[in-house]
């Protein structure tokens, strides 16, 4: 397992950050996947009563051959299970995101991203913690990218 932590500062209020990044229509993540993972057809469910939702995307990226082989020849759709802890007026929020490829044994490639954000008035700041459980040696650098 490998962990990386990044300090982040965003130039908007916590409320605006949450309403933008975690909007119910999933617009932010649809744009993100369209631009970053090259999947313009990423799907985002609505938030359910447990403050959870699932994003499904199929990255169109170049992978080393051994990774493709490990995944069965092609890149499968990735399920990103998100959970948000935030209530209106709160001074901090936590977003948890657990991504696994939709294949048998996909949990071997689990990537967990935890975003903790605190309100600083007109701006907000926090930490993003990424945990990789990719079991194949050498994969981490690519996933981090």
């Amino acid at each position: 397992m490998k962990e990386a932590v990044f300090d982040v500062n965003f130039n908007v209020s916590l409320k605006t950050f949450i309403e933008t990044v975690y909007s119910d229509d999933g617009k932010f993540y649809k744009s993100f996947h369209s631009e970053v993972t090259n999947d313009p057809k990423a799907k985002v469910t609505s938030w359910d009563h447990t403050h959870s939702r699932t994003i499904t995307f199929t990255p169109d990226v170049k992978l080393p051959g051994f990774f493709k082989t490990a995944l069965g020849g092609a890149i499968p759709p990735i399920n990103d299970a998100q959970q948000l802890t935030y209530s209106e007026g709160a001074t901090s929020a936590k977003g948890l995101s657990v991504s696994t490829p939709s294949i048998k044994g996909g949990e071997r490639f689990r990537t967990q991203v935890e975003i903790e954000i605190q309100s600083c008035g007109a701006t907000c700041k926090g930490k993003i913690r990424i945990e990789l459980t990719a079991s194949i040696f050498g994969l981490q650098g690519m996933l981090e990218g």
């Binding site: 982040v8 965003f10 908007v12 950050f17 933008t20 932010f28 744009s31 993100f32 970053v36």
Partner: peptide, 14 residues
């Protein structure tokens, strides 16, 4: 990439 994208997206949304 996520952080860079988020900052740009938030700036555009302003």
């Amino acid at each position: 990439k996520f952080i860079e994208f988020t900052n740009r997206y938030l700036a555009d949304a302003d």
